[in-house]
Amino acid sequence: MSQQVRGVIARSKGAPVELVDIVIPDPGPGEVVVAVQACGVCHTDLTYREGGINDDFPFLLGHEAAGVVESVGEGVDLVAPGDFVVLNWRAVCGKCRACKRGRPQYCFDTYNATQKMTLTDGTELTPALGIGAFADKTLVHQGQCTKVEPGTDPAVAGLLGCGVMAGLGAAINTGGVDRTDSVAVIGCGGVGDAAIAGARLVGAHTIVAIDRDKQKLEWARELGATHTIDATEVDDVVTAVQDLTGGFGVDVAIDAVGRPETWKQAFYLRDLAGTVVLVGVPTPDMKLEMPLLDFFSHGGALKSSWYGDCLPERDFPVLIDLYRQGRLPLERFVSERIALQEVEEAFESMHRGAVLRSVVVL
């Protein structure tokens, strides 16, 4: 029997979000209803509200979440009622050409729930990243549920569902950072600071944080940056990084902003044969113009990082274990805990750069 619960929706482009009643159907084949316990406020949710993803309004926002499986549909065998799970937006299919080549982190045909959640008048909702977790409960595919250690703070665990995993994975999975490497991260918001935490976790000996905001640079130091550069106080960021690395540049440069000018900085502030990782998301109008010879002469690797190239069933439990052991300070990303009706205010805090993450706690 369907249920009526609260949910936060974006009804039209740029309009303030609304807390309304929504309808959750009983789970069908392969589907799961999850009672949401916490959900981070991610910039992607704001992008949905602004129409930057698509125009399939109304959107049920929220996707960076953890909770408890309440009920399951026919054929569900990955989780059971009572399991504590982190939700993910890349449930791999196991059948596409990427999966068959042993690269499921690049799955080209990820799963979502088949049924639609709706408004009480029957209007179908589009769940953000196939999840829609600014709600008391949500309907997802079983592959979007990753079991992790019960008893973990849901506000912390849920952050692995998007931004923190994106940053950690950009450093560890995509960038392949290890203890022999020097690293620079441009943009020290939630994703950039997660990349810094990831570089520290694997023992990178030099970690340079670059931003224009002093508070963000302070957060970066707390999460493992060995050096910080305030871009407003130097003539040239590339030269400043080279001065910290014997004149050579870093082995791995991570652009967590996603603009042509920051990508160029990342390209030129790395050492010869170094790696550039783009994890910040550009907008469709952005263009890049550079001498082709520079690509050839600098060598190395130029990579984009999708969701930190993670495999949730592999990565989430390990990272939660590291957090519980005190080796990965995920709790530092939780700037504030808010109620479901405070999402719009959380967007404003995000705009001001006042938080790493606001987390809705239900």
Rank of each mutant, 00 (worst) to 15 (best):
K303V: 02
T206Y: 00
G274S: 13
R324D: 03
E222S: 12
V234D: 03
A220L: 03
F295D: 02
P260F: 09
G247S: 11
G299V: 07
K216L: 00
K214S: 14
S305W: 05
F296H: 15
V202Q: 08
A273M: 10
P282G: 09
K287P: 01
V318G: 00
R259M: 07
S297M: 14
F296I: 15
V277D: 07
P312R: 02
M286R: 11
P282T: 11
S304D: 02
V279I: 15
V241H: 10
D315V: 04
E218G: 06
A256Q: 05
T228Y: 01
V237Y: 04
V238N: 09
P260T: 08
D285N: 14
L278Y: 03
D271Q: 13
I207Q: 02
L223T: 02
R212K: 13
A225M: 06
I254C: 04
R221M: 09
D294A: 11
P291S: 14
Q215H: 01
S297D: 09
R259I: 04
L311R: 05
G246M: 07
A209R: 03
V250G: 06
T262G: 01
D211W: 02
A301W: 10
E261G: 01
L302Q: 11
S297K: 12
L302F: 15
V252I: 15
P260Q: 09
V208P: 03
A209Y: 01
D315H: 12
T275G: 03
L272V: 11
D315M: 04
M290R: 03
V257L: 10
M290Q: 11
L288N: 06
A231H: 07
R259Q: 08
L278S: 13
K303N: 13
D321F: 00
I207K: 02
W219C: 02
L293A: 13
K214Y: 00
G258N: 05
V279W: 06
P291N: 15
T275C: 06
V318D: 12
W306D: 11
G258E: 04
V234H: 04
T283H: 11
G308R: 01
A301R: 15
R221F: 03
G280D: 11
A266P: 01
D235P: 08
P291V: 07
E261H: 10
T226N: 10
T206W: 00
R200T: 08
E222A: 13
G249T: 05
D236Y: 06
P317D: 02
H205L: 04
R259N: 00
V252G: 07
H205M: 09
W263L: 15
L302C: 07
L288Y: 14
D271V: 08
